[in-house]
Simulated scan of single mutants.
Amino acid sequence: MEPAPPIEVTRLLARARAGDAQAMGDVFSALYDELKRAARLQLRRMHDDFETTALVHEAYLKLGGAQLAAQDRNHLLALSARAMRQVLVDDARARKADKRGGGQDALTLGALANAGEAAAVEVLKLDELLDALHRLDERAAQVVELRYFGGYTEPEVAGMLGISESTLRRDWRRARAFLMKETAP
C-alpha cells in the first residue's frame, strides 16, 4: 500500500486540531500500515510478546488519540515512534515489577553498531541511555528513536528531520558511539 501523501495528512491533522473528531481517526487510518510496519520491525528486534496491532493501538492511546497536536505527517510519525518506545518501556517496567520475577527481553545494540557487536542492553537501560543522549544531543537521540524504535531508513529519517543524509549519518555515528561507550564493560 502506498504511504499517505504528507499534504493530505497535514490537512487532516489541522482539521483534528480544529475540533473535527473524525479527522484524527482518518489520519491514523491513512498511516496505519506505516505504523504497523514500524511496530513490526521493532518487535522483531525485541522478540517481545506484544503483537504489532496491540503496539500500534497502545501507542495511539499513549499519544492521546484525538487530543494529539502533531503538526504534520513527519511530526506524527516521530511522536508515534516515541510513543512505541514508551509503551515498550512501560511494559518492561511492569514485567520487572512482577512479583513472580517476570523477566524482560533484552534489546541488542548490534543493529545500532552495524558491525555485528553483540552488546545487549535491557529495555529500561536503553531508555535511560536515550534520555541521557537526548540531554546531550537532542537530534542524535531523535535519529536513534526513529531508526531503532520507528524502523525508518536513513533517507526516511533525514526527510522527517529535514536534514541531509550525510548529516544524519554523522548524527547516527555519534549516537552509536555514545550508546556503545555507555554500555561497554
Rank of each mutant, 00 (worst) to 15 (best):
A23W: 04
K125H: 14
A69Q: 15
L77S: 04
R170F: 12
L31G: 00
A118H: 11
A119Y: 12
W172E: 10
Y148D: 09
R40Y: 14
V144W: 04
A177H: 08
E122V: 09
F28P: 01
E58Q: 12
Q42I: 10
L61W: 09
E128H: 07
V121F: 08
L63H: 01
Y32F: 14
A78M: 13
A158N: 05
D49F: 13
G19M: 06
V89L: 06
M180S: 04
V89P: 05
S164C: 08
I7H: 11
A30H: 03
V89R: 06
L133R: 03
A115H: 10
L179P: 02
E154G: 15
D91T: 12
A106G: 12
P3E: 04
D131I: 12
A83Q: 02
R170H: 13
L76H: 00
L63S: 00
A118K: 15
D72H: 13
L124Y: 06
V157E: 01
D91H: 15
R176L: 02
K96F: 10
R139D: 11
E156C: 00
A141K: 06
A97H: 09
V56S: 01
L35R: 09
A140C: 04
R73C: 06
A184P: 04
E58C: 13
L12A: 03
D20L: 03
R82N: 10
P185D: 14
M1C: 10
L130I: 11
A111R: 13
R100G: 15
E138N: 07
D131Y: 09
G25P: 02
A59G: 07
L168T: 03
V157Q: 01
K125E: 14
A120R: 15
M160P: 08
A113W: 02
L107G: 06
F178S: 05
A4E: 01
T10M: 05
Y152W: 10
E154F: 13
D98G: 10
G159Q: 02
R173A: 09
K36Q: 15
V157M: 05
K96H: 11
Q22P: 08
D72Y: 03
E128W: 09
R135T: 12
K36E: 15
M84T: 08
A158S: 02
E122I: 07
L109Y: 03
S164F: 06
A81W: 01
G101K: 08
H134W: 09
R73F: 01
A21C: 07
V87K: 00
D20Q: 04
L129W: 03
T153F: 12
M1Q: 11
Q142W: 13
M160K: 02
S164D: 08
D48A: 14
R45P: 05
M1S: 13
R170N: 12
R147Q: 11
L13D: 00
P6H: 01
L12N: 01
R93G: 14
A94Q: 15
M180D: 03
I7K: 15
M160A: 11
L133N: 05
E58V: 08
A94M: 10
G162I: 05
Q142F: 06
L129H: 06
A120P: 09
E58I: 06
L112P: 04
P6Q: 00
A39M: 01
L68R: 07
E165F: 02
A78Y: 13
N114Q: 15
A175Y: 00
S80M: 09
V9S: 00
Y60G: 01
Q104A: 12
Q86D: 14
A184R: 10
T108Y: 08
V143L: 09
G162D: 06
G116H: 10
